[in-house]
Write a protein that binds this DNA or RNA. Structure first.
Length: 277
DNA sequence: AGTGTATCCTGCAGGC
DNA sequence: TGCCTGCAGGATACAC
């Protein structure tokens, strides 16, 4: 998906576009991105006002009046496309609309998703609290310390890459940034999480923050589908060291980058900078 | 507890 | 041109 930097970029683009607007009607084009029947979803959102836009992990959170929230997980190909009032509730980049929020002022917000792996939910305070607690540390927050990371890593023997993809531990890292962070830390993706020394945990913490912050600055990474709220691409792809660069030279040592498949996903690594256990 | 596998769905690139 | 296979920023459920 859109990982943390893409979600953050979308949130920043959406803020000026959707704040203080009342949802007059939610048009459900593809109910499979909902987790409840369309009628229940519509009843939850219609007549409520979007107050602010936030992010939690990879999720875009639209805060509603009366303590409700629209929570959007963009899956692999989800997009949130705002439409200004008077533009007719369509968007030139919307090829596969799944849910269209029609605002009272004539504007709209389109949730578009080619593969429909994403999810759009309307949660009350309690359900959101539960969801929030199920998600792990925010990697760009102050809480994400070396001690916290090292302690969490120590509780699991799963491979470091799989560990990073689990949103219950650290929220927001996906396959691209896991590959990049592990490269920066010099840690092989298959290394058991609990085998990382404190020093390695420190490098991993720094690597995660460096790569996520850099990607936010570049507006995210567009491989194919990702677009920000303005329909533009993310330029971090130029700065990727290993992801998608099989057989290309490692930027640090020129050794050929290797692709290894495990846990159903491709891992990319430099066999020289990231030695196996 | 961890892992391999399958599933949801569509589109695109590459090989023949 | 067309057909086929493999692949994709995610998440989950299942059998070992």
């Amino acid at each position: 998906m859109p990982e943390l930097p893409e979600a953050e970029t979308i949130v920043r683009g959406l803020r000026p576009a959707v704040g203080d607007r009342m949802v007059r009607q939610a048009e459900v084009v593809h109910a499979d991105v909902l987790r409840v029947p369309p009628g229940a979803f519509r009843a939850c959102v219609e007549g409520r006002t979007v107050e602010t836009v936030a992010r939690r992990g990879k999720n875009v959170v639209l805060d509603l009046d009366r303590d409700g929230r629209i929570v959007v997980n963009l899956g692999m190909t989800g997009r949130l496309l705002p439409v200004a009032p008077g533009e007719g509730a369509t968007h030139r980049d919307s090829t596969h609309p799944a849910v269209v929020f029609h605002f009272e002022d004539g504007g709209a917000l389109i949730y578009d998703d080619v593969r429909r792996f994403g999810a759009v939910e309307c949660l009350d305070a309690e359900a959101w609290g539960e969801r929030d607690r199920a998600l792990g540390l925010e990697p760009l927050s102050e809480d994400f310390t070396v001690d916290a990371l090292h302690d969490l890593l120590g509780r699991s023997r799963s491979p470091a890459r799989s560990w990073l993809l689990d949103q219950r531990r650290v929220a927001g890292v996906g396959n691209i940034y896991a590959a990049e962070a592990l490269f920066l830390a010099g840690v092989h993706p298959r290394r058991p999480a609990n085998s990382l020394s404190r020093e390695e945990a420190g490098r991993l913490r720094d690597g995660i923050r460096t790569v996520l912050a850099g990607a936010v600055r570049a507006g995210g990474t567009t491989i194919r589908d990702y677009r920000n709220a303005e329909g533009g691409t993310g330029e971090f792809v130029r700065q990727l060291a290993v992801y998608g660069r099989e057989e290309e030279p490692c930027p640090r040592c020129d050794t050929a980058i290797v692709r290894e498949v495990f846990g159903n996903r491709s891992a990319f690594l430099c066999p020289s900078c990231q030695p196996a256990g």
